[in-house]
Amino acid sequence: MANSALDFSAFSSSALSAEETQLIEASVAQFGAPLLLLDCEVVRQQYRALARALPNVTLHFALKPLPHASVVRTLLAEGASFDLATSGEVELVASQGVPADKTIHTHPIKRDSDISDALNYGCTVFVVDNLNELDKFITYKDQVELLVRLSFRNAEAFADLSKKFGCTTEMAIEIITQAQQLGIRIKGLSFHVGSQTSSPQKYVDAILACKQVMETIVQLGLPALSTLDIGGGFPVSYAKQITPIEIFCAPINEALASLPQTVQVLAEPGRFIVAPAVMSVASVMGQAIREGKMWYYLDDGIYGSFSGLMFDEADYPIVTVNQDTQCFPSVLAGPTCDSIDVVAESIMLPKLNNGDLIVARMMGAYTSATATDFNFFKRAQTITLNEHENIQTLVC
């Protein structure tokens, strides 16, 4: 089935275009519901936008939010590199022909099998944030280069990843010193300021702190560090507009310019690349009036594609294919027998019939990746659009 590239990232709950409606109805007619429509053209657009905004940074796509083969192939064709965290992710990129030298392994805590699996593939750059983890690389010291991850707490982020991972600047210096004694090469530093970070100042502060650590390392007579990984967390618009990425990244670029020219800078974008690239489609299974509100029960919910409402705190813009202007306070519930399986409360919707379609935008990150088959409701099928540039296709 042919189609043109669609703007799945349309801000807020704007009405569907005629083209979107046609695609959605044709897809449901062919594949059924629920569905996730993945537009690889949007993936390309997002990658290119971030590459322009961070012109001197090597982008390693973090597979975690959407580990899909079509996304890997699309980004590989764009020249992207990849950020891996598990052996499963290693298997995915290997199966899609990603050269190992375009990957880094950034999980701070690993089993020996995780290290050996990545090394067998050819990935040689790993992350540590404590001395116990450093000791795991003694056996592999002639094969690896390490990044030491620092912690920069960020209570404003959707997910403050520095709560679980990262070390202080003082500990980073201790790790680097110990590594030198063990004969393990430390390549550089890394950090992650947290998912959906609203202020670029968090990156600026972390970059400048890492710069100080790099200067201290040289003063101590240890080998100079050649790499800084600034992580991910670049924000996208869900229910409210955020700063355009080129403006958001301007102070980050200014801070990076203060680093020695010999320092290579990496980033690990995930959500920014894929969140706008997926639109979900669910159908109304049934309906009931409860406490004066109409409840619509969908064939997708919290345990499926809307899992991000639980794990990610995302606020997905929701629209209906039925575009009647008269709307009523309504509730959207998922299909399972669990009472927490509610997608939206007090949402204004037109009167819907069984079989009508509900569409959510910005569904590319932490949706299908965290979906389950709970209650034996099968998770939504992902349909790929426009994987090959300039060739408009829709495939299962």
Rank of each mutant, 00 (worst) to 15 (best):
264 Q>K: 14
14 S>F: 05
274 V>T: 11
40 C>M: 15
150 L>M: 14
353 N>T: 12
150 L>H: 12
240 K>W: 11
68 H>Y: 05
308 G>W: 09
35 L>W: 00
363 M>D: 05
143 Q>N: 08
362 M>L: 10
173 I>P: 03
187 K>D: 01
254 E>S: 12
359 V>M: 01
198 S>V: 12
207 I>M: 09
39 D>F: 05
336 T>P: 07
211 K>C: 10
225 L>I: 07
394 L>W: 10
177 T>L: 03
294 M>W: 07
230 I>K: 01
203 Y>H: 12
39 D>L: 08
293 K>Y: 05
329 P>W: 14
158 F>I: 03
265 V>Q: 01
54 L>Y: 10
375 N>S: 13
18 A>C: 10
395 V>L: 10
295 W>E: 08
174 E>V: 07
225 L>W: 14
165 F>P: 05
233 G>R: 08
291 E>A: 06
299 D>Q: 12
189 L>E: 10
346 S>M: 14
50 L>N: 09
159 A>G: 03
325 T>G: 06
287 Q>D: 11
385 L>C: 09
393 T>E: 15
88 G>F: 12
311 F>N: 03
83 D>F: 00
139 T>S: 12
346 S>T: 11
25 E>R: 10
31 F>D: 13
44 R>I: 11
46 Q>C: 08
265 V>C: 07
13 S>A: 09
336 T>W: 09
364 G>D: 06
109 I>M: 04
344 A>W: 15
301 G>S: 02
102 K>F: 14
